[in-house]
Design a protein around this nucleic acid. Structure first.
Length: 581
RNA sequence: GCUGGGUUCGUAUAACGGUUAGUACUCAAGAUUCUCAAUCUUGCAAUAGGAGUUCGAUUCUCCUACCCAGUACCA
């Protein structure tokens, strides 16, 4: 017991997608293993044939992979659950439904040693006892008192038991919980706990229904055979701990019994109850790491699909019920492995906070370089009809001024260099990669429709007049382009004076030949506006509307130095034409 | 109901008998600014209640309240 190698396991049940509470349990086990130089084992506990859900096992494996954690034991070379013993997977199979013979052997051992017995009570008989007790306001428990009034190998004559065992397979095996014994337990997180066995019942160890063990038996047997040293699991298992202690004792395995640590539950945001799989979209945030489509076609959101970085998800989740003991909050997987300790796991349930989750993602997004983000944004841009080209190629760069280099707004073609430049100026306003587009689509596409947002510069128009012909440049690439026109009071930025100001600003930009940096160009533009004694705010806001179609957003100098003066000029001309009377 | 666990700002948590009870998120105000963000500064806000033990309790003990879990031939 003294110098056993640390071995922990994550043992989910494939009854559906793994939810975030399960992921956190896996994470803590993984951190614990890494920190102690031990093994992290994956085992699938599918002893309930009724609740098996196809695809759940694959989902669990993929979710762990997405989080960046790889089991040391349990998976074969193809990344599937190992079914044959090998050097790497000496305890295979790791799927409990494949280990039936092992469990029945141990169950019978328990009967032989007098720690378990056969029970022949039918489901109907048990249900009758329950409703009977219920009518008296009590709860029926199959325990050290009632078992003597039931049909089992303790009460029936020996011949009758033998006959029943021979003629039918209609039996279960129950644990014979000793009477009036104090179970003294130690939990790594909660300390010393004592329970008297009189409050415990005779749990079923072997099920008649599907000829498989219950969780309790399979779990203890496997943890023993797989030489698990620490069991780190959710708090919902705490009430079963006395039973598990008694099972270890009955088997005579107390010397190598693992240490137990029961993690606090992950609660719903309102604190009412534990976060469950059904809460999904109801609460407005995912409860699953990855998107899940149930066999019946129901779709549940996932953090991955919602745009979370796995590092951010892992970091956020790790901090629900644990802290490193200092004031750090942003920790990589590696740092989490080093900082993790059960000493800093809290005892009370943690409510999930979606706001904080987003904050974590924002922090991780900021740590990424513009180049990396540009790569991640590419698919988003493509989905909005943008294309990519490497620079320099032909017209893309030849005709562009040096600021708008790499962008062909007419054909919606951009270089990686341009995207990186655009990403750099919107980075601070994004939480997710997709925000890099939604926060400023005008960096890729010209605004197309001012009027719909209340911009009325010219004389009032007859609402019955035929619609204006559609400008070819407004050709819809993506309808979501209406998103940037966010202000309802955009009109106030478009004043009649605009017709005089804009051409002059356009001319200023065309003549500008200073250093084309955000600060230099910005200063020059401001100087020009001030020199003409124009009101800075009004002019800038009008310019922003012209260039972006939005009432608020990026700084003018940032926009112009990114899209280039040529494109800016084109947008000014279009606005004057469209909005002119 | 019974059994077990839990309880520090709205949320996540720090303080493992001695602090003006700290930090982060959220929120508010101010600074900055061409707008909106970002950023910076400041602020709001907590030991569930009651008894003990102690020179001294967030911390230890007990009681009460509230919350959670379990109470299946589910895990």
């Amino acid at each position: 017991m003294a110098d056993r190698k640390t071995r922990v396991r994550f043992a989910p049940s494939p009854t559906g997608p793994l939810h975030m509470g399960g992921v956190r349990t896996a994470l803590y086990n993984y951190f614990y293993a890494r920190q102690h130089g031990g093994d992290f084992i994956l085992r699938i506990e599918d002893t309930d044939s009724n609740r098996f859900v196809p695809g759940a096992e694959e989902y669990i494996i993929e979710a762990l992979k997405w989080c960046g954690i790889c089991p040391d034991e349990g998976l074969d070379a193809n990344g599937k659950l190992a079914e044959e013993p090998s050097l790497r997977n000496p305890h295979a199979p790791y799927r409990q439904s494949l280990r039936g013979e092992t469990y029945i052997k141990y169950a019978k051992e328990l009967i032989a040693s007098g720690n378990a017995y056969y029970a022949f009570d039918t489901a109907e008989e048990l249900a009758a006892r329950r409703s009977e007790a219920e009518s008296e306001g009590k709860t029926f428990t199959y325990d050290h008192v009632t078992r003597m009034h039931m049909r089992n190998s303790l009460t029936l004559p020996q011949e009758e038991v033998s006959r029943l065992l021979e003629e039918t397979s209609d039996w279960t095996i129950r644990f014979k919980m000793p009477a009036d014994t104090l179970v003294e337990m130690d939990d790594l997180i909660r300390g010393h706990i004592e329970v008297n066995t009189d409050t415990l019942d005779d749990k079923v160890l072997w099920k008649r229904a599907d000829k498989l063990p219950t969780y309790h038996l399979a779990n203890i047997v496997d943890d023993h055979l797989m030489e698990i040293t620490e069991v780190i699991r959710g708090e919902e298992w705490l009430p079963s701990l006395p039973l598990h202690y008694m099972l270890y004792k009955a088997f005579g395995w107390t010397d190598t019994m693992p240490h137990f640590a029961h993690l606090p539950l992950l609660l719903k945001p309102d604190g009412k109850g534990k976060l469950s799989k059904r809460d999904g979209d109801k609460l407005g945030f995912p409860v699953f790491p990855l998107k899940w489509v149930s066999p019946t076609g129901e779709v549940s959101r996932g953090y991955r699909e919602d745009g979370y970085f796995p590092e951010a998800f892992v970091n956020m989740l790790s901090f629900l019920g644990w802290n490193p003991g200092d004031e750090r909050e942003i920790l990589s997987l590696k740092e989490l492995e080093e900082a993790f300790s059960l000493d800093h796991v809290s005892k009370s349930g943690a409510r999930f906070n979606a706001e904080k989750a987003r904050w974590f993602n924002r922090e991780y997004l900021r740590m990424k370089s513009a180049d990396e983000l540009a790569g991640l944004l590419a698919p988003v841009l493509e989905s909005h009809g943008m294309q990519f080209a490497s620079c320099p190629v032909g017209a893309l760069c030849a005709g562009a001024d040096f600021a708008g280099e790499g962008a062909d707004f007419e054909n919606h073609i951009f270089t990686a260099g341009y995207v990186a430049k655009a990403v750099a100026i919107v980075k601070d306003r994004a939480t997710f990669v997709s925000d890099l587009w939604t926060a400023a689509p005008y960096l890729y596409i010209a605004p197309k429709d001012f009027e719909a947002y209340g911009v009325k510069a010219g004389p009032p128009q007859d609402p019955k007049a035929p619609a204006r012909p559609v400008d070819p440049r407004t050709k819809v690439v993506d309808d979501s382009l209406t998103a940037p026109f966010i202000g309802k009071d955009v009109a106030k930025f478009w004043k009649p004076e605009a017709y005089e100001l804009l051409p002059q600003i356009d001319a200023f930009m065309k003549d500008y030949n200073g250093i084309f940096s955000v600060s230099k160009f910005g200063e020059a533009l401001e100087e020009f506006i001030k020199g003409n004694e124009w009101p800075m705010g009004k002019v800038m806001n009008c310019l922003r509307l012209t260039l972006t179609g939005a009432a608020s957003g990026l700084g003018i100098a940032e926009i112009v130095t990114t899209i280039g003066t040529k494109e800016a000029s084109r947008r000014i001309a279009w606005a004057l034409e469209r909005l002119g009377s």
